[in-house]
Amino acid sequence: MGWEVVANAPAPEAEPEPGWDDREPGRGRRLDRLKRNPSLVAGLAILGLFALVGLGSLLWWGRGLADLPTNSGWAFSIDPPGPSDAHPFGVINGVGVDVFSGLLRATPFDLALVGGPILLAALVGGLLGTYAGFSMGSVDLLVTGASDVLVGIPSFLLIFVLYYGVVAWVPIPDHLLVFGLLFGAILWPYYARPVRALALEVSRERYVEAARAAGASGRRLVARHVLPNSLAPIFAQAPIDVYTVFFVLTVFPFLGCFSPIPTLSVLPTTAFPEWGNLLALGACHGWSVLGGVGFWWMYTFPLAAIVAFGLGVSLLCDGAERYVSGR
């Protein structure tokens, strides 16, 4: 009989079923998505390298990480050594520091000073924005009001207003930590506002209604449905904030060099290992408007570190956005 043959036929290979969650179908397995996403891989690779270097520096120098040695012989040299065997990236005169050693030591500090506020702001801003967009009550009013006030003052000015106020009450070793925390406290509205706008739209989507009808609690709705789909603006904003933080770290130490404005730095010492600070020092001592390129190694290598880091964050965020949205 025909049906017996049919009953013995092997079952056709089943397509992987779309999950019960609300993401778009046809996403495929995780590894495949990774392979189709070169920017994510590149971003992870670059930042992973920085993280490794940072960890290595931290382990190698331990407590003496911030004590970048200054050599007055180099400081007064009008012919400072450029890239060579002894100094792979050359030396900055004026303060007398070795660029390679400075950049290595600076890696953990910069990862913390730039990555820290951004992560903090993204976390706080993302959560607050999602909740505000979803619940739209007094929480929304509070979040919107606070965001509007903070966004009204340019962040590179607001950071100093807050810093001067808080730092007077805090002992000197904690000043850098205060700076990082305050910057995170300034940057969160730039994440909260677009996330809130998106969360507002997402909350009105059909699948959220359906989940609510199925009896999901508010918290579950936010956590499983609204939050994952509102995070895209975070990836757009993070690379911009890398610029914002480096603007403050790089520009203010440099100001005193070419104009009567005194130098202002949130760092404890002049030759503190931090990419922006080293860049400012290098540009100050290495660049001469009259002398052309001058001592190019003093500012090129710190600049390369900053640009590489920013590129890594940018690639990672672009790739992460694609990954999360399933493109």
Partner: peptide
Amino acid sequence: STVGLLVPSFLVLLAVYG
């Protein structure tokens, strides 16, 4: 635009002046 954001503006300015 990413690279332009990250190269500090004063370097661009000094390069132009130079």
